[in-house]
Every structure is written in structure tokens, then in C-alpha cells.
Design a protein around this nucleic acid. Structure first.
Length: 281
DNA sequence: GAGGAAGCAGGAAGTTTTCC
DNA sequence: GGAAAACTTCCTGCTTCCTC
């Protein structure tokens, strides 16, 4: 039985002419994903309302903005509207904080077993954690007070958190939850730049030299590390929380081989000089 | 613009853990 | 020890983005 069918794409809502109160036809796309196919117009109630994007986040009250897509053609960048709306509150938003921590502890990220969605919700709601760094400050007495936890599970969770203190650079980058950066992109960043400091400091134009990293992803990575809150969390993780990143070292051969001086000058829009250069007036 | 890849997401089934 | 709840993992199509 299909219990839910979500529709986040406002362009798709507009295309379907969907209104609140409508009856819709859904199908299972393949075996799994429920898809809204069509609105049953004849069943539309008189009090049907238009779907409106909220101006503020229902959880934290922060402004909601539409994502923007950056495209480059013939050296010119153009900005168009994306399909996704986002709360700008980031980790100050409780809902985003919970999802960020759920992602951080997931198996493919920091692999902290015993921390599921429900437990993380409890920890955030009880204000025991306000960022991934707070996980490493949790105490036995705090965990055992949680619903569903007893002695064995509390000790197990503390051990799992402690065991996660030496992640590879790729896992750590993936765990940070940078938009559009999944496992593969995190591996590329780790393999090519081989140090978190290089990833943090890389300009978007430089990041686009990496395989499968375009402008859109490069700007997401750059703005993530520009954000003061994100920087503070990372500093706390690597400082007081005692995380030690593995696999850091020299600049990867993959990046060095793909980077030429001419390429960098072009990507960074540095005006050319010399006999053939355009004259300024 | 086309083709391909990565990321994302809902449901189901299996596993683990707690509680009574 | 059994029931119930929570958690994990897998499956696979859609959307978005990247490269050519």
C-alpha cells in the first residue's frame, strides 16, 4: 500500500495544475517510488486552494528561497531558477539540524551505529545536541535517560561514537552534508586535494577542474566552507572533539595532471598579457 | 541537446533491542 | 521468552547536474 506520495517540485505542481484538496491519480514508478500522474479535475472541491510556497520556514521561521542554477556558456555565466526551495536557516533550523545529524552518523558517512532518526530527534528536542560536534560530548547519564535506551545500548552507542574519531577524509567530507556532494564527489575531493584545508580554501573555478565537478557543485562546496557556522562546527570536530582525519597528504596526481597554467588563467578570468593582448582604453 | 552518472527518496523486509 | 518498536539495508525510478 502506498501511504505517501510527495511532490516537491513546484514546476511539476504548476504543470499538473495541482490544488490543495484535489484528488490525484498516482502510480508506482517501477516498483518503488509513488508518482503523482494526474489531477482528477471533476473531483476538485469548491474550496480547493492554490498551492503556495511558504515565505518562511514552518519550523524555524527563516526566509525560504529558491535555488539558483549557474550555467556557463562561451565564457559567460547565466543564472536561472532551480526546482528546489530551501530554508536559509541551515543548521539554525531544527529540522535541518536533525537531518544533518542523521546524515552525519549514517553508515556511509561516519558509521555511528545505534543512532537512528528517532534517537536523534530526541537528542535535538532535548537540546542535548546542537551540532554533530555535540555528539562527542554526550555522557552516559544523558543517553540512558533517553526513551528506548538501557545500559547495554548506552555503552554501545558511546563506543560507536568514540570509534568514529578517525574517519578517512572522504568519509568526513561526505558526512558534512554539503549539498550535491555525495559519496563519489567526496572521494574525488579527497583523492585530488588530499587535505581538508585545500578543500576549504579552493575557489569554485579551481574545483571545476576536478572530474564530475561543475560550477553548480563547486559553488555549493565553496559557500559551505564560507559559512561561519559550518566552519565553527568543523573546527570543534577537529579540535575539542579530537577527530583525526586519515588519508591526508600531498596534492593528488589526478588534480595536478588536469591543471595547466593556461587553464587556471582562463577559469579565473585573468586578462591575458603580452603581444596578442587586447589594449585597454 | 543528448547521454550518462550521482544523489535522493519511499516502502518492505530483516535484524536488533527494550520492555513486560 | 515473546511482543512491540526502532533501526538498518536494499531496491530502483526520478531529478538534477556534468561532460561532450
Amino acid at each position: 500500500m502506498v501511504a505517501n506520495a510527495t511532490l516537491h517540485n513546484m514546476d511539476e505542481v504548476a504543470r499538473l495544475g495541482l490544488m490543495i484538496g484535489d484528488t490525484v491519480i498516482i502510480r508506482r514508478a517501477g516498483d518503488v517510488i509513488p508518482q503523482v500522474v494526474q489531477v482528477v479535475a471533476e473531483r476538485r472541491p469548491e474550496n480547493a486552494r492554490a498551492v503556495q510556497v511558504p515565505q518562511t520556514c514552518p519550523v524555524c521561521g527563516s526566509h525560504v528561497e529558491r535555488t539558483q542554477l549557474i550555467k556557463r556558456s562561451k565564457g559567460k555565466e547565466t543564472v536561472t531558477e532551480g526546482a528546489v526551495y530551501r530554508c536559509v536557516g541551515r543548521l539554525a533550523c531544527g529540522a535541518q539540524l536533525k537531518q544533518a545529524i542523521i546524515h552525519y552518523v549514517s553508515r556511509r558517512a561516519m558509521d555511528i551505529e545505534g543512532l537512528g532518526d528517532k534517537t536523534i530527534e530526541q537528542l535535538v528536542d532535548e537540546k542535548l545536541i546542537g551540532s554533530p560536534a555535540d555528539l562527542y560530548k554526550l555522557k552516559y547519564e544523558q543517553i540512558i535517560d533517553l526513551e528506548g535506551f538501557a545500559e547495554i545500548s548506552s555503552n554501545k552507542l558511546l563506543k560507536a561514537i568514540a570509534d568514529s574519531r578517525q574517519p578517512t577524509l572522504a568519509r568526513f567530507i561526505y558526512a558534512l552534508g554539503i549539498p550535491d556532494v555525495g559519496e563519489e564527489t567526496a572521494k574525488v575531493l579527497a583523492r585530488s586535494l588530499a587535505s581538508l584545508d585545500r578543500v576549504k580554501q579552493a575557489l569554485p573555478e579551481v574545483l571545476t577542474y576536478l572530474p564530475d565537478v561543475g560550477l553548480e557543485v563547486a559553488y555549493e562546496i565553496h559557500s559551505f566552507f564560507e559559512d561561519e557556522h559550518n566552519r565553527n562546527v568543523i573546527d570543534a570536530l577537529l579540535g575539542e572533539c579530537g577527530l583525526q582525519l586519515q588519508d591526508q597528504g600531498e596534492l593528488g596526481a589526478e588534480f595536478a595532471a588536469s591543471t595547466t597554467l593556461e587553464g587556471l588563467i582562463d577559469k579565473l578570468h585573468i586578462p591575458s598579457v603580452g603581444p596578442g593582448a587586447a589594449q585597454t582604453g
